[in-house]
């Protein structure tokens, strides 16, 4: 995507997940299909990890009518209702409240599914964060909160925005067991979700702070170290500790080569699909505003 962006065929601003894949992958790999996730505007990794269709995603970024939001939303608003991924606001934190509502419904419908609410460190500064944690504890909801802490809200470091930059302590203050996962360890995260899920399904929220790092700029395909708000040195350990690379080396050579080839093909096919898809026809403007009533 970063490679294709300069062509201007991608019509959407993109908030890339590069560097932050582990949180989405480690969690979603441990979920069941009927489990539900709410995410943020940085949602490419989450959409794919939950099983979203790659073709529909790339077409969405191209603003095509075959996109998962019919070219209406773009990168920040990927929606995969068929795989249990709901759309996000651009205002951070908003979906945390949606996630507790969904979890509340699951509990009272006596479903066995759980909800995972993903948000960033910035979202923990919004009032809705505290409001939602309170309700989740009060009703003992089947929800896992995952704070993807990449340390920056756009260009401002957590320490310059939070008087006490300890997110887990705040979750605990509401009465939610909380733990911090250093280095975005994808396998450990997977194990933790596997272990926590049965307990959470029975009711009772859990909170995970997953430390991570955004490699690219806040929005756009490039690096942004020239802006001077963070240093390349700071990113270095995260690149060394890249979880994608780590998983890659756990797969033996021939199998890895085959996998890489298949993925490349899938990506090429998705871009080809997006390029050949039609733009939305004029009448699409009024499509799907209301559900028709048949009373």
């Amino acid at each position: 995507m970063a490679r294709a962006y300069p062509s201007d065929k991608i019509k959407s601003p993109v908030h890339l997940s590069i560097g932050q894949e582990a949180a989405s992958v480690g969690v979603c790999a441990a979920l069941e299909p009927e489990d539900v996730v709410f995410g943020t505007y940085r949602c490419h990794a989450l959409y794919l990890a939950k099983g979203g269709d790659l073709k529909a995603m790339i077409a969405e970024l191209y603003g095509k009518v075959t996109g998962c939001a019919r070219g209406k939303g773009g990168s920040m608003h990927l929606i995969g209702t068929e795989v249990g991924m709901h759309g996000a606001s651009a205002v951070v934190g908003t979906t945390i409240a949606n996630a507790i509502g969904h979890a509340y419904a699951l509990k009272y419908q006596k479903k066995n599914a759980l909800v995972v609410s993903f948000f960033g460190d910035g979202a923990t500064e919004e009032g809705v964060f505290g409001e939602s944690l309170n309700f989740a504890v009060l009703k003992q909801l089947p929800i896992i909160f995952v704070c993807e802490n990449n340390q920056y809200a756009i260009h401002t470091h957590q320490s310059r925005r939070q008087g006490k930059p300890n997110v887990c302590a705040r979750a605990e203050a509401y009465g939610i067991p909380a733990e911090r996962i250093e280095h975005g360890d994808v396998l450990y995260l997977y194990e933790r979700i596997k272990a926590l899920a049965p307990k959470v399904r029975g009711g009772g929220p859990h909170f995970l702070e997953v430390m991570t790092y955004r490699w690219q700029e806040h929005v756009g395909p490039n690096r942004d170290f020239q802006l001077g708000y963070r240093t390349e040195d700071e990113m270095h350990p995260w690149v060394e500790n890249d979880q994608v690379d780590r998983l890659k080396h756990m797969v033996d050579g021939p199998r890895r080569a085959k996998l890489e080839e298949e993925v490349e093909e899938e990506i090429a096919a998705a871009f080809a699909f997006a390029e050949s898809s039609p733009v939305p026809p004029a009448e699409e403007l009024y499509a799907d505003i209301f559900k028709e009533s048949h009373s």
Binding site: E60, G63, K64, R70, P280, E284, L285, Y286
Partner: peptide, 16 residues
């Protein structure tokens, strides 16, 4: 136009 937002594709924006 009274639509819920402005869609990403320029067709939506132009028609909205």
């Amino acid at each position: 136009k009274h639509v819920p937002g402005i869609g990403l594709n320029q067709v939506y924006e132009k028609n909205t």
